[in-house]
């Protein structure tokens, strides 16, 4: 089972939910921190870094002696990463997405590939949790290849939680693709609801079964609950707006460790997602119908 944790709005509690769930498993679990621009699960799941792998993408390298300046590479590239103006092409590795197209279309076979480092994937062991986190190098704007590299290190036989970056753009899609179930974390505020609707559209497009986790229940209003009821989206978990949770967070403690009374809450989320996943036959275009589950 691979469980994706996502949200439209940032700061709703993805990390809190992901890290606490991973610990709540008790048995061996994997946590993938796919927020590669600012991975932070390691602040809560501390332990030694067992491994650090350098991740690269292929970028073009032009052999000027073979190039006849035909410009095919330049016409092919959608990212202006290789430019030829009746000259040997100029390469901008920082704009290259590593698709390899320029090398394929070059009639002269003048384009080879060289590796460009984009970041690292680190593996941290923290009690029952194996945390794998992508860390994008400063100045690099290519999160999806690094996210895919981190996910490729997942072992299928162990339960995995994928902590996605916020938003609904390419890095989030890269993180969620291939997950079995997605929990969308939101807060009961107008902003939280607005971005939740965007995230719901996204997971429906990806055709991944999903439910909602409402964090900081007690603030804001009841519109998130009204929306979920109207859209027949199961509310998987409600985390109360408890000052002690914020206090634990501020010192890097997990809720399940600092406030054992919440342990059952996170256990119930694991059970619910498993149950809903098993009842996948009950999927309708509108998401999950809890009655059928």
């Amino acid at each position: 089972m691979i469980l994706g944790i996502a949200s439209g709005k940032g700061g709703t509690g993805k990390t809190t939910v992901a890290a606490n769930l991973a610990r709540a498993y008790g048995s061996p679990a994997q946590l993938l921190d796919c927020d590669v621009e600012e991975p932070n699960d390691h602040l809560f799941l501390r332990g030694p870094v067992r491994e650090q792998e350098i991740i690269t993408i292929p970028v073009p390298q032009v052999d000027a002696s073979l190039c006849d300046a035909c410009g095919e590479c330049s016409r092919f590239c959608q990212y202006s990463a290789i430019v030829s103006l009746r000259t040997t092409p100029i390469v901008f590795p920082e704009l290259c997405h590593g698709c390899g197209g320029c090398a394929l279309v070059c009639p002269q076979g003048a384009i080879g590939e060289t590796e460009r480092r984009i970041g690292v994937v680190e593996t941290v062991e923290s009690e029952n949790v194996t945390l794998m986190q992508g860390r994008l190098d400063v100045g690099v704007a290519l999160a999806p290849p690094l996210i895919r590299a981190a996910k490729a290190r997942m072992r299928r036989e162990t339960p995995a939680i994928v902590d996605a970056p916020p938003g609904t753009s390419c890095p989030v899609i890269a993180a969620l693709r291939g997950t079995d179930f997605v929990a969308l974390v939101t807060e009961p505020t107008p902003f939280g609801l607005h971005d939740l609707t965007l995230a719901v559209d996204m997971v429906r497009e990806l055709r991944i079964p999903f439910g909602v986790v409402v964090n900081r229940v007690g603030i804001g209003d009841d519109r998130v609950h009204g929306y979920c009821a109207a859209e027949k989206i199961p509310v998987l978990l409600e985390i109360p707006d408890d000052r002690r949770i914020a206090e634990a967070y501020s010192v890097g403690s997990l809720i399940v460790d600092a406030l054992p009374e919440y342990r059952g809450l996170f256990m119930s989320l694991i059970e619910k997602t498993m149950k809903l996943k098993c009842a996948e036959i009950g999927v309708s275009a509108g998401g999950y119908d809890e009655n059928q589950a």
Binding site: S80, V83, F92, L95, A141
Partner: peptide
């Protein structure tokens, strides 16, 4: 989104 200067130069 990116490469505006390069495209303008072209």
């Amino acid at each position: 989104a990116q490469g505006a200067g390069i495209q303008a130069a072209e």
